[in-house]
Design a protein around this nucleic acid. Structure first.
Lengths: 137, 137
DNA sequence: TGGGCCGTCCTATCGTCCTAGGACAGTGCG
DNA sequence: CGCACTGTCCTAGGACGATAGGACGGCCCA
């Protein structure tokens, strides 16, 4: 319980660091890893951990406050809002649905049939099983 | 048959226009919509259709030629290479697998169980059916 | 041969995002 | 009170991609 939250940022990912951080925070709240009233790492502290600029973290905190997910108390810290879980679950479902819809759309336009989509999905669900032939379970 | 290829670019999408065009071309080749030897739209022509800069299209043609997908004959046009379908199918499968893997990873970190993942997947496969609650199965 | 189309290349400019470093006011605690 | 910590704000700069406009040589066909 010491570390309630671990943020990982890939500086050369296809999505900017600020969005990566925001998405991870939203998902953590939706999953119940962080609960309303909980305090988040400070701008400078998380900046060191995630290897980003303090301004980048500050921007995320500000954006999430405008969404109603966080409550910022200058001089004290930022905290998870009461309505945050509901908001984040909605946002999570919307984002996951949109991404999966785009994936299905792209896969179909690339000539894959429904059976192949299902096969890829099953493989993605169980990446540990049926990896190679002779592998310890 | 008149229009062998229609490229759509969303200027404010999360991915840059050049990558959107390259992905659509690769997918079209993988799907068999365009076959080896076929001629692609000219840099200037596609630039007008897709509402992008000719330099952007030129960059895509050059990148895809370095991949071995296209063959550029200056003064004549760019054409689908013989080995392109194989290359594009591999690239397509790798990209779709990676994207779906990332999706499953994110969905799990957001607190969703395997059953919920399957439900979202079924819904994405059949967006027309089971829209609302009270519907015959 | 000449005109039109082709891909390529060049320089310059713009917008967006992250980085960098500093300054400020508010809060909590000893 | 005084100090450490908090979020916020400001200016400046760089990286990256797209845009803009032009110039070059190659290819096809009348």
């Amino acid at each position: 319980m010491g570390q309630s939250l671990t943020i990982r940022v890939d500086p050369k990912g296809d999505r900017p660091p600020s969005e990566q951080i925001a998405a991870q925070v939203r998902f953590a709240i939706a999953a119940g890893v962080i609960e309303p009233g909980a305090r988040l790492p400070s701008v400078r502290q998380l900046a060191v951990e995630a290897l980003v600029n303090p301004n980048t973290v500050g921007k995320v905190w500000r954006d999430l406050e405008r969404e109603g997910v966080l409550e910022s108390r200058p001089g004290d810290g930022v905290f998870v809002a009461v309505a945050a879980p509901e908001l984040c679950k909605d946002a999570r479902d919307r984002e996951l649905t949109a991404r999966l819809g785009a994936w299905v759309n792209d896969a179909r336009s690339a000539g894959l049939e429904e059976g192949e989509l299902r096969e890829l999905f099953e493989r993605a669900l169980a990446p540990r099983r049926l990896r190679r032939v002779g592998e310890r379970s």
